[in-house]
Amino acid sequence: MYLEVKSMKKSYGQNESYIQVLKGITTGVKRGHICAIEGSSGSGKSTFLNCIGGLDTLDSGSILVDGKEIVGLKQNELSDYRRDNLGFIFQFYNLVPNLTVEENIQVCEYLAENPLDMEELLDILGLKEHQKKFPSQLSGGQQQRCAIARALIKNPKLLLCDEPTGALDSKTSKDILILLEKINKKYGTTILIVTHNNSIKKMVHKVIDIKDGQISKEYENEIRVPAEKLEDL
């Protein structure tokens, strides 16, 4: 397993405001697989993703990424872990408004030891003709493509996607999922996708369904539907 999670527990608040969000999750994802993490709002999906991404700390449990334990790392070690291993894609694109598409991507390119080729990435994501534009000059789908390019330029081993199609229409959502599928095949990137969308689970290798902070079911797809054939996005 590339990602191994054991007895993951996470809570917030104290006394009357105390809430346990994750209640002992144990699971794993194979190297190079795409995994959908599903569940209703408040089920703990994003907290699960944030803990794997080192953005949130666990109360207890273990998170092994490529054999390395990340629970208990110091802040500078977590920063190194995120820099060297992870790419993040969020529902809201978080682009720097006064930087062009190219410059937004370069922000992360400078952090990487072995970045992907900028021209190749712009070509794959259909951004070549937009590279000198600012975010305000782009559509929502183009902004999300830019956010994906920024995450990928570092050549991350693990790509964490929190509702990457949540703010997009159905056609643009399909385009983005086709891109993620292409990235997975081309670079062998392990991808976790937190989503509300039931259709996405048909294209992935594995589905983890979280309910009330626990895994209610998980399974691997024997037959996967290509992203371009997904319906009801």
Rank of each mutant, 00 (worst) to 15 (best):
residue 109 E to R: 14
residue 123 D to W: 15
residue 119 E to M: 04
residue 114 N to E: 11
residue 105 I to R: 02
residue 109 E to C: 12
residue 135 P to D: 07
residue 112 A to L: 10
residue 100 T to E: 01
residue 110 Y to K: 10
residue 103 E to M: 03
residue 119 E to P: 13
residue 110 Y to M: 14
residue 132 K to R: 12
residue 128 K to S: 11
residue 107 V to T: 10
residue 111 L to M: 15
residue 98 N to W: 04
residue 114 N to Y: 15
residue 105 I to S: 03
residue 111 L to R: 11
residue 132 K to G: 04
residue 135 P to M: 02
residue 122 L to Q: 05
residue 101 V to S: 00
residue 111 L to V: 09
residue 103 E to I: 02
residue 112 A to T: 07
residue 104 N to Q: 03
residue 105 I to C: 06
residue 104 N to I: 08
residue 131 Q to W: 05
residue 113 E to S: 15
residue 131 Q to C: 05
residue 123 D to S: 13
residue 123 D to N: 11
residue 110 Y to T: 09
residue 106 Q to M: 14
residue 112 A to I: 10
residue 129 E to G: 04
residue 115 P to E: 15
residue 116 L to S: 14
residue 98 N to P: 04
residue 115 P to L: 07
residue 112 A to W: 08
residue 132 K to F: 02
residue 107 V to P: 05
residue 106 Q to D: 13
residue 102 E to Y: 03
residue 103 E to Y: 03
residue 108 C to K: 07
residue 123 D to P: 09
residue 134 F to C: 00
residue 127 L to G: 03
residue 126 G to T: 07
residue 124 I to W: 11
residue 119 E to C: 05
residue 119 E to S: 11
residue 111 L to S: 07
residue 113 E to H: 15
residue 130 H to D: 09
residue 116 L to H: 10
residue 108 C to R: 12
residue 112 A to N: 10
residue 112 A to Y: 09
residue 123 D to Y: 04
residue 105 I to M: 13
residue 119 E to V: 13
residue 111 L to D: 14
residue 113 E to T: 13
